[in-house]
Design a protein around this nucleic acid. Structure first.
Lengths: 189, 189
DNA sequence: GTCTATAAGCGGATAGAC
DNA sequence: GTCTATCCGCTTATAGAC
């Protein structure tokens, strides 16, 4: 297997942070998962915080191609965005780690706070730019592109969180498709 | 002052859980805030978990009147809902504790998990019922009332979270007003 | 009611052997 | 590279004195 030790550790950390959060997961748990002791792990990442930062950077690489290149840029917005929601469901760990750590980073003194704040700003501006290029200052529905970007982001995160809290009957990709179709307006896509 | 010792403790716990989360806040910090030792505090709430449960029940009482009775039931939906968002901003601790603890409860083995799952179901059904009473199966925009309830909840939580992460330029109550006006449809309210 | 004392555990991190 | 040993801090919780 060509996977390096560092990558194995990052994989394990991703799973455990996704389940228990950064604070809730211990270095012992992560080390055990890859067949190491806590001290052996610390040889690769000198502190828990450094491990977290490395993990966040890697996660961003992994999801960038899917979220941006493969889906959002294409043409049928409502279904494409619904596919993003569906994609999240097919890669639970990847979506979960984002939701869990972003939420945890809202607490005081969390090491990932800045990362998520910057990430959110970048995504919001990216979406706003795409919308403006296509529709100008307002969508066909009359909604400001700025407001649309904010709302889209809130919906993505809110739906994902709702689903993690209670994997119930509601078909969230479908909700996303319906809502976004109406928010875009009659002339969409 | 007529406030009982238990209530003082609950107030302090609310502030500290809101800032650091349940896991991040310690009994020592809470006790110090009310001028007690950790052991003195444990006389009123025999465990940290019991304290959390008592706090969640009290929080629900406090917000019920504002969120349900004072706002949502009245007539101009878009602005009323915008006021809910604005209300959250005027009572940061109350809104923050909800967002922070709900998010934290998504992690494995969190003592508040069931509480928030049940709470979310109840609110979603409540909103769906109100919408159905007024509009039937679909809003004037054509959106399913079920989907509308899900989306409204996701938007409320998503916007609040976005705002906590980055208190920036965007006027979230206004975003909520615009978005909800479009989701309701042309014949609103 | 509130305290002191103490138990008992887990967390992250370091030093140094192999 | 990976381990053993160890430190130190912080946490929750209990026992019992006043």
């Amino acid at each position: 297997m060509g996977t390096t030790r560092r990558e194995e550790i990052l994989d394990a950390a991703m799973d455990l942070f996704a389940e228990h959060g950064y604070r809730g997961a211990s270095l012992d748990q992560i080390a055990e998962r890859v067949g190491l002791t806590r001290q052996g792990l610390l040889h690769y990442f000198p502190s828990k915080k450094k491990l977290l930062i490395a993990l966040l950077e890697r996660r961003e690489e992994l999801s960038r191609e899917h979220l941006v290149a493969d889906h959002i840029v294409e043409k049928d917005w409502p279904t494409q965005i619904a596919e993003v929601v569906a994609f999240d469901r097919e890669h639970p760990a990847l979506a979960r780690i984002h939701t869990i750590l972003m939420a945890e980073s809202l607490t005081e003194g969390h090491p990932a706070r800045e990362h998520f704040r910057d990430h959110q700003r970048a995504v919001r501006e990216h979406i706003a730019r795409l919308l403006t290029e296509r529709y100008g200052d307002r969508l066909p529905s009359g909604l400001t592109t700025q407001a649309a970007a904010v709302a889209l982001l809130a919906l993505l995160d809110g739906l994902q969180q709702q689903w993690l809290l209670d994997r119930e009957q509601v078909d969230h990709p479908e909700v996303m498709r319906e809502v976004w179709a109406i928010l875009l307006g009659p002339a969409a896509p």
